[in-house]
């Protein structure tokens, strides 16, 4: 059970959160202008690193805010959390 630091509520049990996949994959400005290949890349392709990974989480059972977290996928350590719209912080 991870302890995830919600940027608003502070550390809470993982059970209160929903996972939203990789962060910083913005919805394309004009999907119609994209080729099938480009659109498929947006839809289906995500990073799967061993190590730090920026991802979206939602404090579903708490303040219902979506936020971003950098989590080390090998150790489950949450290295940083930041609010939507903020740039990904530099983590070790």
């Amino acid at each position: 059970m991870l302890l995830i630091p919600c940027p608003w509520c502070g550390p809470r049990d993982e059970a209160e959160f929903g996972y939203g996949g990789q962060a910083h994959v913005p919805y394309p400005q004009d999907p119609a202008a994209l080729s099938d290949r480009e659109w498929a890349r947006y839809l289906f392709f995500r990073d799967n690193p061993k190590g730090p990974h920026a991802e979206r989480w939602c404090h579903s059972a708490g303040c219902r805010r979506w936020f971003n977290a950098v989590r080390n996928t090998a150790t489950n350590e949450v290295l940083a959390v930041y609010r939507v719209g903020e740039p990904r912080p530099v983590t070790g």
Binding site: C9, D13, A15, E16, A61, G62, C63, R64
Partner: peptide, 10 residues
Amino acid sequence: CAQTLLARAQ
């Protein structure tokens, strides 16, 4: 105050 889970209910 807090929104949280108690047992399996929000």
